[in-house]
Design a protein around this nucleic acid. Structure first.
Length: 802
RNA sequence: GCCCGAGUGGCGGAAUAGGUAGACGCACAGGACUUAAAAUCCUGCGGGUGUAAUAGCCCGUGCCGGUUCAAGUCCGGCCUCGGGCACCA
């Protein structure tokens, strides 16, 4: 058999018959939306890891279609991104040309693997017809006060004169030229994502994401409950606010710390310390975020000469500045309780600041020993005036009401998640449809003028001052103000890579709508994405961005649900045969094209489903792949043993397999689905009179979602019925699955000593009789007293003897 | 440091709610077919002990303890590996 030809033949058949085309608003069928993350079309082509998740969900989609669902299983391209831009800079061709080629290659590979995507809905995020709506949605963010410009620090290479991503500035040096990277303030578009923190947290309850995915999101949002407390600066009118999760330790505060960027720093610093402070602040500004948060870094800082007043006891405490306090979290200032915070403890030790213990393991103060490290957990309050004797929870409650009563603080919730920096100084992204006018300020483009197209040019290098390459294209930049008609300039930043992927699943529902990003009725019809599969590396960022985007659209009435994704799952990685991540440099990369050429697409598909637990990492094994190839060949070979009988020779095995495969394909247990089919094949091969057409047909149907080409071919070759992709999925009969007889184990005093055949409705007494008759059991039962006889129906017999 | 995930034969992995651990596959060994090899088919395959063989017995799911008639599975305490976050107050 020529696999290449057979596969091509059926791939053409599916194309010609539009077998996998999903119909919008088809009310004769239940909708079912299965989504796999669309890839970034890199030059490297499809990875075997893509094949794993695509095959898995393809199998699901194919079964669901046969079960009568209207299945939406789309594919597209996340086409904006840095690699295409780098390539363009080097070769002076427009990135869209390189992307076009890569897409062509990806699509070819996907076709050879037989994925049942509805190609009629294909699009790329870099298509103007698509990014028109990404821009349009940005305008909605802007119009609803959710987008704003802010000055934020970025990594800046003074040599290359360009803004670097954190990845390109790893270790604090520019990846390209090795120059020390500095922090530079830059105006960026921001989306007010932090204001959605609580909703994004709560919304998780309306989803069925895998636990590890939910946890990833929860951690990223980083909710922490505590209080804000106001501290007056001694001898000044100024005061500052700190955030703490432990207001109950206020009596243990021995100093305060402001972030070096805190606005109050220079105002309160005394002349004596001014020089030190300025120097320290300067030093910090040279470090990027990576360096500042470096592992196990020793604490640094300087005293400002100023003192704060602890509002609960009026103690004078020194104010330091240190970069262990981040300006971007909380209030950028902390109260330090060295006795009960590890970082404060370390700092206090280094700067010889007193440490006051306000929590003890017990109330017995005579046993109190000096702390060798901070005591961070619960305990009993001491040295804390009206909090003495209370535990952590009680203490927090009491101090909160005290703070609120005296107007010196209040309960406060903080989130780690920040607003979304939505600007990139890059060429290859969606242009931000904003115009700057000297008179009117920032003015949104008129919606009817969208899309704002990326210009066709030949130079993509960044400009000298770190502006996007678009800034050099003066024809494009210079425009008129939509409001007053005066000369104005376009925004030259583009959107981040995550923009287009934040709503593509909505577009798939209604991919070619020219009037709106997607029609409401159509979105209502499809409802939520039933299954969304993607890599674990996207659980924090992509998935949160997408959920934020959807929640916003929901709040302004443009999508039917606040959460549009129901189940999110993540496949495990496929590692090289040496157990390491596949990479060119390690030489352990497997190219799906080669495997398809040598063994056929079906073998690759079966192997990737069989190789292990879908959600777990596995390493590649060509031997194991060959084993799956043997299985496929045996499926072909058993066709020669077709007899002219009808029905099932062993209905129980067939129905059990139907149940097993049907269940496993929607619970991600693809490996045991394949194994069940192997077991059935092993059994059928042993039938003395060959197999019936009915048996072959049902077997091929069950295998079809995983190995769609060869099963269709065999089905046709032996005239077993109409094409499987147009046939119904078999239904099992519960009655035929039940075993009337079963062999179960017999335990005596907890040890397995024999086995017995029981019938389904045997009573304990009948089983006991049976067991007592078994010869081999005599030596365990004779001359012994049976203390207890346990029979767990159809499971086990357990006897206790004395 | 914190948060996940995982530790089961030579290997990838099975084991619905605690109920005969090792399904299925790979590798390996022996045999059949072949002039020979490959392919294919058959048999065996956790360790130990034991038997002419069958049987029998002991140990065994990272380690230590516990609950239970019964623990890979539940509980407590560790260890190792993989991944993510990382001075978030």
């Amino acid at each position: 058999m020529n696999m290449m030809e057979i596969e091509k033949k059926w791939q053409n058949y599916w194309d010609e018959h539009q077998t996998f085309r999903a119909i919008n608003n088809d009310n004769t069928k239940k909708p079912y939306y299965i989504l796999v993350e669309f890839p970034y079309p890199s030059g490297a082509g499809l990875h075997v890891g893509h094949v794993r998740s695509y095959t898995a969900h393809d199998a699901m989609a194919r079964m669901k279609r046969m079960q009568g669902y209207n299945v939406l299983f789309p594919m597209g391209w996340d086409a904006f991104g840095a690699p295409a831009e780098q390539y363009a800079i080097k070769n002076h061709i427009h990135p869209k040309e390189a992307v076009k080629e890569n897409i062509h290659n990806f699509k070819r590979q996907m076709k050879t693997l037989g994925f049942s995507f509805d190609w009629s809905r294909e699009f790329s995020t870099a298509d103007p017809e698509y990014y028109k709506w990404t821009q349009w949605q940005f305008l909605q963010f802007y119009k609803h006060g959710m987008a704003y410009k802010a000055t934020v620090p970025v990594n800046w290479c003074p040599n290359c004169k360009s803004v670097l991503s954190n990845e390109d500035a790893a270790g604090g040096v520019c990846e390209r030229c090795g120059t020390q990277v500095v922090q530079k303030e830059k105006d960026q578009w921001m989306l007010k994502m932090a204001s959605y923190a609580e909703d994004l947290l709560k919304g998780l309850d309306d989803t069925h994401f895998a636990d590890r995915v939910k946890l990833g999101q929860i951690n990223w949002i980083g909710k922490s409950t505590g209080a804000e407390v106001d501290f007056k600066v001694d001898g000044h009118d100024e005061s500052f606010t700190v955030f703490t999760t432990r207001p109950d330790t206020l009596f243990g505060v021995t100093y305060c710390v402001l972030a070096p960027e805190h606005p109050l720093v220079l105002k309160i610093t005394t002349d004596e310390y001014k020089e030190d402070v300025i120097e320290y602040t300067k030093k910090c500004s040279l470090k990027n975020e990576m360096e500042r948060t470096e592992l196990n870094k020793e604490k640094t800082g300087v005293f400002t000469g100023a003192y704060a007043i602890n509002p609960v006891n009026n103690e004078k405490i020194p104010i330091y500045i240190s970069d262990y306090v981040l300006v971007s979290y909380g209030t950028g200032a902390i109260m330090a309780v060295p006795a009960h915070d590890e970082r404060d403890f370390e700092f206090a030790k280094k700067f010889n600041i007193p440490i006051i213990q306000v929590l003890a393991p017990s109330t017995d103060l005579s046993t109190l020993e000096p702390l060798t490290k901070a005591m961070e957990g619960d305990g009993v309050h001491i040295n804390s005036s009206f909090l003495d004797g209370l535990n952590k929870e009680e203490g927090i409650k009491k101090i909160l009401s005290f703070l609120e009563e005296h107007h010196i603080g209040k309960a406060k919730v903080n989130y780690k998640m920040r607003d979304w920096i939505f600007s990139r100084q890059r060429f290859w992204g969606e242009p931000i449809p904003m115009i700057y006018c000297e008179h009117c300020g920032w003015v949104p483009m008129d919606e009817k003028d969208l899309p704002l197209l990326l210009p066709d040019v030949t130079e993509y290098e960044p400009t000298d001052n770190g502006e996007s390459p678009l800034a050099k294209i003066t024809d494009w930049v210079n425009t008129t103000c939509p409001k007053c008609g005066a000369k104005a300039k376009r925004e030259t930043d583009t959107m981040p890579n995550w923009a287009g992927s934040s709503w593509y699943f909505l577009r798939f529902m209604d991919a070619h709508n020219e009037k709106e990003f997607a029609n409401m009725d159509i979105m209502k019809y499809w409802g939520k994405v039933n299954w969304y599969n993607g890599g674990m590396e996207h659980t924090a960022r992509h998935l949160l961005y997408a959920r934020f985007w959807v929640q916003f659209l929901y709040n302004i009435g443009l999508v039917p649900n606040k959460e549009m994704i129901d189940i999110r799952v993540s496949h495990g990685m496929i590692l090289g045969s040496n157990n390491e991540k596949m990479s060119k440099s390690k030489g352990n990369v497997i190219n799906p094209d080669d495997v398809v050429k040598e063994y056929g697409a079906d073998t690759l598909r079966v192997y990737e489903m069989f190789m292990g637990d879908y959600q777990q990492d596995v390493s590649w094994s060509t031997e194991s792949l060959r084993g799956c190839n043997r299985f496929v060949n045996r499926v072909i070979k058993i066709g020669e043993k077709l007899n002219d009988k009808e029905g099932y020779q062993n209905p129980s095995s067939i129905h059990k397999t139907i149940k097993k495969v049907s269940d496993d394909l929607v619970t991600l247990k693809f490996n045991t689905a394949v194994s069940a089919l192997m077991i059935l094949l092993n059994e059928m091969e042993k039938y003395p009179d060959g197999i019936t057409k009915d048996e072959y047909r049902v077997f091929l149907t069950l295998l079809n979602p995983i190995a769609p080409h060869i099963t269709e071919e065999l089905n046709e070759q032996y005239s077993l019925g109409k094409p499987l992709c147009e046939s119904a999925w078999p239904i099992y009969d519960e009655n035929l699955i039940k075993d009337t007889e079963k062999t179960i184990g017999i335990q005596v005093n907890g040890k397995l000593r024999g086995e017995v055949v029981v019938c389904e409705d045997d009573t304990t007494d009948t089983v006991k009789e049976k067991v007592e008759k078994i010869e081999n059991m005599q030596k365990y039962l004779q001359d012994k007293e049976i203390v207890k006889f346990i029979y767990v129906p159809n499971k086990i017999v357990s006897i206790i003897v004395k």
